[in-house]
Amino acid sequence: MARYIPPVQSKLGQVIDVIVLVVLSVGALFVPLWLGLAGSAKLPVPVENPTWESLGQNPVMVAQWNKLGFPDAASAHDMITARYDYSFSWISLAVMVIVIVGYFVMMIRFSDIEYREVIAEKFGEK
């Protein structure tokens, strides 16, 4: 197999490549944050006139809350009642599975194409 000679990349091209990677990676985290889509729906479930008993706290738990700086039930209300919402649709689960499996399949197939070139050039054609 003929040896592959890569083109020489200009300095500007190298800088642009790095900028592309940085923008994409920062965007992957911050775009969901900016759009308000990041994080889970862990929201307090309001309880009217909360008491330690109505919040399901036994005396030992109350003693520990007090040590942690929460003198009454109202002060700990939001933390105690906050819950994740684990409801989901099977369609969104299926989309997630397809995206993850598709990503790995695509990557392994493209990698294999590139790998065969590497092996052919390194060890010669079979």
Binding site: P32, Y84, Y86, F88, L93, V99
Partner: peptide, 17 residues
């Protein structure tokens, strides 16, 4: 996926691109 599905998809999307 339970609670942080958006980040999961955003991240995989990033790696695909």
């Amino acid at each position: 996926f339970l609670g942080y599905g958006t980040q999961l998809i955003a991240m995989i999307g990033f790696y695909i691109v």
